[in-house]
Simulated assay, not measured.
Amino acid sequence: MTRRHEPRGHAESPFTAIARFVRETAGETARGMVDLLLPSACAICRALHRADADGIVCQACLARVVRLGWPQCSRCGQPRLSATIPLPAEAIPSGVIPPCRWCQRLAPTIRAVRSVCRMDEGTGAALVHALKYDGWHAVAKPMARRMARLEWPADVVRERTALVPVPLSVTRRRARGYNQAERLASALSAEWRIPVWTDVLERLRDTRSQVRLTPSERASNVSGAFVAVGRAHARLRGAHIVLVDDVITTAATINASARALADGGARIISCVTFGRAPEPGDRAVSDYDFIRN
């Protein structure tokens, strides 16, 4: 991890801290006075703006989040086809889009994966960076609200038992001071009204940063890095767990996590992230290739 990626924490002045406290605890009149005298500054663009439900991030920055395109694979959520070219009827006689190549990288126990946005366009990457490296914990709330609105297969919505954030190693958590996946899971729990289980999955060792690794190196890096905690096996037995992480790239981390949860007794695992890294050549191939994919 480079120096510029070290967590800086909340760089709040005493006035900003007081204003934040008043906004969170005082009545509407007092909050209005604080907004007038000390308007909020966006964690992404630093522009002053009126505090609202997502007051830590201005509406302009939230509007610039580039959502994943449609239609998407019903299992992995990867954008599949061009919206401008109709799908040939003979390609889907059952009316269901066939599995895609991205699905093939997922462990068999993974039922579905969903992500909100692209990481190569818009403000999605900036939001993740603010949460993960800059210590802006409150950014998790507007991120989780958008994660909560994602569409899922009906069985996932019906069966999901608990949210499990992908754990950090003890060393990395100590250095960062928190786990960004836990922050997202906590905020998402309030939206979905299902519990967060932070004590069922453990990271056994500190792994290298995945940022500059190839897909095969990523898989090797996290292989065997996770284990289901022994005392949690009874809770996991038969459960449909939803893994939570900030970004998915090659699925190596969620595959390793899912295998550990399945070994611990979980019946099936889904996964939700805020961002999804672009695929090499994403949307650069022909529309017909997406149709045949």
Rank of each mutant, 00 (worst) to 15 (best):
G55I: 08
R80A: 15
L131M: 07
E121S: 12
R50C: 09
C42P: 07
P79V: 05
P99F: 13
V116G: 02
M119G: 07
R118A: 15
V34C: 04
K132Y: 04
A125W: 07
A63Y: 05
D35W: 01
Y133V: 03
T84C: 00
V139H: 01
T25Y: 09
A11R: 09
V22M: 12
L106R: 06
V57M: 01
F15V: 09
C42T: 06
G9A: 06
A11C: 03
G95H: 09
F21E: 12
A63K: 06
A138N: 12
R75P: 00
I97M: 12
A83V: 08
A107F: 06
T109S: 15
R75N: 02
V22P: 00
L68E: 04
G122F: 11
L68C: 13
C103S: 09
I18T: 09
M33W: 14
P86K: 11
C117P: 00
R111A: 15
L68A: 09
A130F: 04
R101I: 11
P39I: 12
G135F: 00
W102Q: 15
V96K: 15
C100V: 13
I56A: 08
Y133T: 05
S94C: 08
A83W: 02
A53Q: 14
V22L: 15
P93W: 07
E90W: 12
A11E: 08
R8G: 08
A26V: 04
T16N: 03
R75D: 04
C100P: 05
V139T: 06
H49P: 05
L37M: 15
D120M: 10
S40V: 08
T16W: 13
L131Y: 05
V57R: 03
H49Y: 05
P108K: 10
P108I: 12
I85E: 13
G77S: 08
L87G: 00
W136A: 08
L131D: 02
W102P: 05
R20T: 14
L87W: 06
A107Q: 14
R67W: 10
S40I: 04
Q78T: 13
R23Q: 03
A30H: 01
R111E: 14
A26H: 04
H137T: 13
E28I: 15
A47H: 07
L37A: 13
A91E: 07
H49N: 01
V57I: 14
L87M: 13
P88L: 10
A26P: 01
V96N: 11
V128E: 10
R3Y: 07
G27Q: 09
D134Q: 15
